[in-house]
Amino acid sequence: MNIKRRNFLKGIAGAGVGVAASPLLTSKALASEVKKLEANHIGMLYDATKCIGCKSCEVACKKANNMPVEYDAEGIYDAPRDLSKESLNIIKLYKGPEGISFIKRQCMHCVDPSCVSGCPTSALNKTANGIVTYDKDACCGCRYCQMNCPFNIPKFEFDDFYGEIKKCELCRTTNLVENGQPACTEACPTGAVIFGKVTSLLAEAKQRLEIDNKRSANSADKVNYINQVYGEFEGGGTSVLYLSKVPFEKLGLPNLPDYSQASLSEGIQHTLYQGLIAPAVIYAGLAAIAFKNRSGKKED
């Protein structure tokens, strides 16, 4: 291919602009459009070291939200293996060199939710009290929320003609209204999962870590927590916080950066299309190239 020096330099300039602009986009992205944790946001604190795997929370959730019994692939009665359209929260078992631990998985009610950001019809919303809600009447079934969620939570009803997305909504129309807290936190016998304002729960979690750090290594009460409250910063923060003595990644909680995916993607998008300046510039550039070729001027 015969490249003229001018055209080559133009190409390099174009690529260079793109690379130079990207860090600017990022820092701008992190600063813009980020939802913050409010003082009145509610959530849950799950302490895996207190959980005995009794599944009271699973049963109570199903009962409060009128979910049917779910048979798994082998037809074993009422033994869901994962979150699904019929199981909005699930307890999973971890067996490893550290011992046995359980983990409760359900919607994390992120501070800056990726599902809300990705939803083209605003069927998913972050409400004033912090719950991420779903409106089936606005949903168009595109499942962008499923693709965006870093925790793989929303489940779509594929076998239903009018399929909906199913995920935990903190019992906002059921137990939260009737009894003041979600069914799972009400049912837990050991207090492994508790309900409250996220700020208070974060303080409680930190206090547990502090108290345990002060205990001597051979104290009978020593828990040996991982010195981190999962959800404080992960993915921009979540309203459901976790404490564990097994590394969180081994329990299936992904290792996320301290900013939300939504802030990054929305930041880039909004920066690129701010006032439609960038599209206008690119259009002008393309138009110039086309115009130049039309004029038929010879170049050496």
């Binding site: 990207s22 699930i90 999973k92 793989n152």
Partner: peptide, 21 residues
């Protein structure tokens, strides 16, 4: 009993952003 099946996740990096440019 349901087991942990998914472990870890892909981490987005800033290198990718430069690559896009």
């Amino acid at each position: 009993y349901a087991q942990i099946e998914e472990t870890g996740n892909t981490t987005p990096t800033l290198i990718g952003v430069g690559a896009v440019g």
